[in-house]
Design a protein around this nucleic acid. Structure first.
Lengths: 276, 276
DNA sequence: ACAGGGAGTCCCACATCGTGAGAACGCCAA
DNA sequence: TTGGCGTTCTCACGATGTGGGACTCCCTGT
């Protein structure tokens, strides 16, 4: 408390609690601008680094803030609770949306995030400038075997589960490029697994191309996938793949920080991971 | 700072920031247990009411807390930002889910919350003990004219918009009870508007009954609807309607507190409310 | 009308508590 | 090596938040 003279603290007249106000402002700005370092944000608020770190540690101890990488912070698991985000899907959607929105404008593509539910892909997030051009909708379910996101998600299923899937359905050809034979699908998935990313070259819709990469949890399991789509624009650019992977990593980090409950997805596995 | 001796403050050794920790704990418990009064929660934490109110006002000033009614508090709009809840739908879903979950177990029914999108009902929340018995899914879209939620939402459309809707489509009979004539639908909607609630007596699915009530924004406009459904169980119990209305009011209050952006829904109106 | 109680606000002397400069450590890159 | 960044710790000081209590509304029950 060495700054008695100067104290134009925004527009608060909430006297007798300046310290708390400062702490909250620090937290809000830190979570709002995840790309800036703690020192920078603290400097903006005229908070010495020493004090800032002390404050931060309290937010961390209450689960309101989490470190994701060095010098990077994000909202912690407690905010999900406060916000009422109880189920996995809405948690993923909420946490990934800002990241995907940024990615969408960066790549000038429509970005999707999807999870596997009942052998189908459920789209949780759709972000993009001209996203109305695509027929997809958040909450919509689509077949998994022909979309980029679907391939990523299927590629991480354990063998038993995959065999069941490949044996269960009839795989209709949505376009002339759709892979419909179970053997060919299996082969495609192996390629996807090896590459770490997947393409959809007009297999769902003519002149619709997309690239997809996995979002993994702390154990390396694939819990979701994100894709970049373009109409009449092939997406096999490696720079694009890298950008996707980068964002997927950010989403993973945020989910990890949130301590999200991944148990719902574990039944995809052979039971090697403890089920709920 | 008159309590020098006693200070078994949970399990924090985050020394030098006890005040902040106390403040955050107060906030967390207040948002986690919305039914308890501030004085109660504060007493639990050994915080005198006087101090508690001062702390609270800071959270309020930062938008992290909002008063909903007397002695009732809920997470404020800023948490939605921190949590990354940017769009209206996920905001509504997140904020209403805890309330609807409680309602579902209270009524022993499956509860839905839906909004109107492109003349269809989009289900944002589905909560209930035996919810797997129903064919609905979050994110699913259904025709509006035959469901309870749909009727509520349609009943609030302005005349021009409603005429357009009634004139546009063909209304297929999903069951023998489905109302399919535009004139009869209009009549039904007028009844709904007068009553303030709507029924679906096996109009979507045989032996599926439901009752629905509106969720309104600060201007009284209907922005969503919630319903209680039962298989082979009629839902015209007035106690049930009251419980629904009660929860709808809570959802409304929370949305209001969040300062949610309702502009997306305003184009349903004649322009009497300022558009974004 | 009255009492009772709970929500919410304000005041102010006191001394506890947070503050913040600075030193220090590990790491990475130039 | 130097410099910068992220992070943690210490410590003396005094500005800061504290909290008891009085007070005002606005209920609700009698």
């Amino acid at each position: 408390m060495r700054t008695p003279s100067e104290a134009p603290w925004s527009q608060d007249h909430t006297s007798g609690a300046a310290a708390l106000a400062k702490a909250l402002d620090l937290w809000l700005r830190l979570t709002a601008e995840p790309d800036r370092s703690l020192r920078e944000v603290a400097a903006d608020l005229r908070i010495p680094a020493s004090t800032a770190y002390r404050l931060i540690s309290v937010f961390e101890s209450r689960g309101l803030l989490a470190r994701i990488g060095s010098g990077k912070y994000a909202a912690g698991g407690a905010v999900a609770q406060v916000a009422g985000l109880t189920d996995f899907n809405s948690l993923v959607a909420a946490m990934s949306r800002p990241i995907l929105r940024k990615l969408a404008s960066q790549l000038a593509r429509t970005i999707h995030l999807g999870v596997l539910e009942e052998d189908m892909v459920t789209y949780l997030v759709k972000e993009g400038v001209h996203s109305e051009l695509l027929f997809t909708r958040e909450g919509m379910q689509l077949e998994a075997y022909c979309s980029g996101i679907g391939k990523i998600l299927l590629a991480d299923l354990h063998e038993q589960r995959l065999s069941q899937y490949l044996g269960s359905g009839e795989f209709v050809a949505l376009t002339k490029h759709t892979i419909t034979s179970p053997d060919q699908i299996r082969e495609e998935l192996e390629t996807v697994r090896a590459l770490g990313y997947a393409f959809d070259n007009a297999e769902v819709d003519e002149d619709l191309y997309c690239a997809a990469v996995p979002v993994r949890d702390g154990n390396g399991r694939v819990v979701a996938a994100i894709s970049a789509s373009g109409k009449n624009t092939r997406c096999d650019d490696l720079g694009l793949i890298e950008a996707l992977k980068q964002s997927a990593g950010e989403v993973s980090a945020r989910l990890l920080a949130l301590g999200a409950v991944f148990s719902r997805h574990i039944d995809d596995r052979n039971g090697s991971v403890a089920a709920e």
